[in-house]
Amino acid sequence: MYTVYGKPMTRTFRVLWMLEEIGAEYDLVPAAPRSPEITALNASGKVPVLQVDDDYVTDSTAIMTFLGDRHGALTHPSGTVARAQQDAVTHLLLDELDAVLWTAARHSFILPEEQRHPGVKDSLKWEFAGNAARLAERIDGPYLCGDQMTIADIICVHCLNWAIGAKFPLENQTLADYAKGIRSREAFQRVRALAT
Rank of each mutant, 00 (worst) to 15 (best):
P112C: 09
D59G: 01
A88P: 03
S60M: 06
V100P: 05
G68D: 00
I154W: 00
P77C: 10
R116P: 06
L19I: 01
G6H: 07
W126T: 15
T75W: 00
D53M: 05
T39L: 09
T103L: 11
H76C: 00
T10P: 00
Q189N: 07
D54F: 00
R14T: 00
P169S: 13
L28N: 09
V157N: 01
D153F: 02
A132R: 04
A187E: 06
F128A: 09
N131P: 05
G181A: 14
P77Q: 12
A40T: 11
G79H: 03
D54H: 08
M18H: 03
P118F: 08
H107Y: 09
A99C: 10
A176H: 09
W126E: 15
V191W: 04
R190L: 06
Q115P: 01
H71N: 06
T12S: 11
L50V: 08
E186N: 09
Q115C: 08
A84T: 14
F109E: 05
A40R: 12
R34L: 13
A179Y: 06
E137N: 07
S35H: 12
K7W: 01
F109L: 11
A99M: 14
N131A: 13
L16D: 04
A43G: 02
D55I: 05
G72V: 07
S184N: 11
L124K: 12
D59V: 03
G130W: 03
A73T: 05
Q115T: 08
A133N: 11
R34H: 12
V15P: 04
M1I: 12
D27K: 13
I22T: 10
L194E: 13
T58N: 12
D53E: 15
V4S: 06
A176R: 14
L92Q: 12
G72T: 06
H117W: 13
K46T: 06
A104H: 03
Y26I: 05
T196F: 13
M9D: 15
G181E: 13
G130E: 07
T10A: 10
Y5R: 02
A176T: 15
A88Q: 15
A129T: 14
D87R: 08
G165M: 12
V100G: 08
A99V: 09
C156H: 03
D177E: 15
V4W: 02
F188A: 05
R134E: 14
L19V: 02
N42D: 10
G130M: 04
H91I: 15
K7I: 14
A166W: 05
M9Y: 11
V52F: 00
D147C: 07
V15R: 02
F66T: 06
H91N: 14
D69C: 07
A176D: 13
A129M: 06
C156S: 09
G181I: 09
L194P: 07
P8S: 06
V89E: 04
P33C: 02
A32M: 12
I110V: 15
K46L: 13
Y2D: 03
D54N: 13
N161M: 12
R116D: 11
R70C: 02
A176W: 05
E127R: 14
A105K: 12
R183E: 15
E171Q: 14
W162E: 06
L194A: 11
A166T: 05
K125C: 14
C159N: 08
D59Q: 11
L160G: 02
L50G: 05
Y2S: 03
D55P: 00
T196P: 00
Y5F: 15
A193K: 09
D140I: 03
K125F: 04
L111C: 04
T65W: 00
N172T: 14
H71T: 10
A24V: 05
G141S: 08
